[in-house]
């Protein structure tokens, strides 16, 4: 009963994911849904950092890139098992995040934005330049992901894998938000000094959530690489970072399902905009500005307030 109440949106989401294959006409649409799911999970991790903890990262694609290229390089050049490569990528990304975060989080203001931005750009440049391993700007192929002799390939198999991962991520994120850890995180966003006085070691929590979001970014980078079967430096690009932050903000900061909506809308948008031939960038930018000016808190919180009068997602 309490599970039903706590997770009613999650149950609806599960039902939708279960029924969706009945209406998806072909692989093109499967592909779009899969990309939406990957983005939604990435954005969820980033929203924990930006929306809930109030810390800005402008280089998250760097971590995605680390995961993607770990999964590309280690099996191809060194014969690692893809799962081991995936774990290695996530470990490297987390380690870098941890090393960078400690000194940065002692500072106040926009310095994390600057540091993450730098980190992301450096990662992208390294990937472009170390062509012997990465294939340079042209990218490189990625081996297929096989689990115990069962190869995950083709849109349909990936759909089910990602549906499960997506549901798990949203369940775990909801749990985290409602836990002592999650409350401490939101409290330090609300009032840093008050949370300190309550016993929250602010720097430790910021580092922990930053590392966690880097970890998941790297995992999803690996998943993306295996799904597409090919990686290019674009995955670690500054634009990709911005795209992810935009999904967080458009969907709604500190809103779990805002992450889902933001990811769905912004993944669909470029497909929809392709009819504008040449004007995509302009229209994309204009939509961003428009949304932020008229719905600065993002879609889901704004609509929730308008129609439900709900104060928070806490219940």
């Amino acid at each position: 009963m309490s599970i039903l109440r706590r997770h009613h949106v999650l149950i609806i989401l599960a039902a939708v994911l279960l029924l969706l294959p009945l209406v998806l006409p072909n692989n093109y649409y499967y592909d779009i849904v899969i990309r939406m799911a990957i983005n939604a999970i990435l954005v969820l991790g980033l929203n924990l950092l930006i929306g809930f903890a109030g810390q800005i990262s402008l280089g998250h694609a760097g971590f995605v890139g680390i995961g993607a290229y770990a999964s590309a390089i280690l099996p191809t050049h060194f014969g690692w098992h893809p799962l081991l490569a995936m774990a290695a990528g996530a470990t490297i990304a987390s380690a870098i995040a941890a090393i960078v975060a400690r000194p940065i989080f002692r500072l106040k203001g926009h310095y994390l934005a600057m540091a993450t931005l730098g980190l992301g750009i450096i990662t992208a440049i390294v990937i472009k330049n170390e062509a012997a391993y990465t294939g340079g700007p042209d990218g490189m192929p990625v081996v297929a992901l096989a689990l115990m002799g069962f190869e995950i390939s083709g849109e349909k198999k990936w759909y089910w894998v990602l549906a499960v991962v997506l549901l798990f991520s949203f369940w775990a994120a909801r749990n985290l938000i409602d836990s002592p850890f999650g409350r401490a995180l939101r409290a330090l966003h609300g009032s840093e000094v008050a949370s300190q006085v309550m016993g929250v070691d602010v720097v430790r929590y910021k580092v922990a959530i930053f590392v966690l979001s880097a970890f998941f970014a790297s995992l999803m980078g690996s998943v993306t690489a295996h799904y597409i079967g090919f990686v290019t430096p674009n995955i670690a690009d500054f634009f990709h970072s911005i795209e992810l932050v935009t999904m967080v903000v458009i969907g709604g900061m500190a809103s779990i399902y805002g992450s889902l909506i933001g990811a769905i809308l912004l993944t669909a948008l470029p497909q929809a905009l392709s009819t504008f031939e040449g004007w995509e960038t302009v229209v994309f930018g204009a939509i961003l500005m428009f949304c932020m000016i008229f719905m600065p808190r993002g879609l889901v919180p704004t609509l929730a307030q308008r129609f439900g009068g709900r104060e928070s997602e806490g219940d």
């Binding site: 775990a172 985290l176 836990s179 999650g182 939101r186 409290a187 009032s191 309550m198």
Partner: peptide, 29 residues
């Protein structure tokens, strides 16, 4: 110094921060 992004009850719950298990993995699962 109230956390305006939380409910009244959650604010009070944060007060009990140190008496709780704050493990990240246990919380997620």
């Amino acid at each position: 110094q109230i956390c305006m992004n939380m409910t009244a009850l959650e604010n009070v719950m944060v007060g009990a921060h140190l008496q709780l298990d704050r493990n990240l993995v246990k919380a997620m699962l």
